Computed example of a mutant assay.
Amino acid sequence: MELFELIKAFILGVVEGLTEFAPISSTGHQILVDDMWLHSSEVLGSKESANTFKIVIQLGSIFAAAWIFRHRFIEMLSVKNAKSEHRLKLSHVFIGLLPAGIAGLLFDDFIDEHLFSVPTVLVGLALGAVLMIVADLYARKVKNPISVDGITHKQALIIGLTQVLALWPGFSRSGSTISAGVLTKMSHKGASDFTFIMAVPIMAAASAKSLLSNYQYITSDTIWFYIVGFIAAFIFGLLSIRLFLELIGRIKLIPFAIYRLVLVAIIAILYFGFGIGRHI
């Protein structure tokens, strides 16, 4: 492949790594950067190949989260952790995953067919931003918010139910679940930890399922495009997750919500005003 094409793969991997776990919607950024500008489908030869590329780079981000929280996953599998009353357990993660997992199986085809468009993503970005602002305003009234190890099964279920909203493209998985955690009196850091830990198994399963159905689009002619994108997503996923976890306790969610609303305005102007991306 030509160098310029590999640069495109690198840029898309960077965008995925930086946005997948931040509450700003990786879907919205992929539309802005790829569908409206770089057009990976033209490099790879089809829309199906471009969608497969998005699955591959998402796996890069998932691997980054799995690596950062590897000690947590090992800890949750230990007998000692299972007996402790004040530690995050696999049961919390399972309960948090259940609602979105069921909804995803029931409505996956409908979502793919009807909700992946620029207007629906804009709606998701805007509504998700409103939820984040509400969560931050509520958090100001909460004294002594709890950490991830203080989470109850009821809180995990509420967060899991809210995660169903993220099936709407643009809403953002982390934006919805961190907001739900904060609204159930968790700290921003605690809600973020639970969100990232919970995201690894459900996103890995969904990506693996999609990849098994579309692996034929990865050919010897395009393999380096996928490899470069995957590596970029993994490296920048590591950096962005660590930075986000350092910052979230100080800056909270409102700055991210404002950024989302600005992104909505940019995409809306490009799409409705200039017709960029109307083919999507």
Rank of each mutant, 00 (worst) to 15 (best):
A205I: 15
A103T: 04
W168Q: 00
H86S: 05
I68M: 02
T195I: 11
K143F: 06
E246G: 02
I158T: 09
L157F: 15
S240P: 05
D34C: 10
K154C: 01
Y271C: 08
Q155T: 12
L243I: 11
I276P: 02
I146Q: 12
K143S: 15
S40H: 09
Q58F: 03
S174Q: 04
N214A: 13
S187V: 02
L127S: 05
H71M: 01
T184V: 14
V164A: 04
L243T: 07
K80H: 14
L263N: 07
P255W: 07
I241Q: 01
H188N: 13
I276Y: 11
D109T: 15
H153D: 05
L131C: 05
V79F: 14
I235A: 05
A100L: 03
F21C: 08
M203V: 14
G160I: 06
G13R: 05
Q58D: 07
I31F: 09
G104D: 09
K209D: 06
T19C: 03
K143Q: 15
T27D: 02
I111T: 12
H39I: 01
G181A: 09
F110Q: 07
L59H: 06
G101P: 13
G150N: 11
K185R: 15
I7N: 06
S91K: 12
T52D: 14
F116M: 01
K83N: 13
F230H: 08
E48H: 15
A265M: 12
I235L: 14
A265L: 14
T195D: 10
L90S: 11
F73G: 07
E48M: 11
V164Q: 06
T19V: 03
T184R: 05
A204K: 03
L253I: 02
R72Q: 08
L88C: 01
G229F: 06
G275P: 13
S207Q: 09
I62W: 04
V130C: 00
I235S: 00
L59S: 10
S210G: 15
K47W: 10
A205H: 14
R87Q: 11
G124F: 12
L38W: 14
H279N: 09
R70A: 04
R70T: 04
R173W: 15
V14E: 01
T19P: 06
T152Y: 11
I227V: 15
L59D: 10
G96L: 02
F69C: 02
T162L: 12
G101Q: 13
K209F: 14
I197K: 07
V118R: 03
A129W: 02
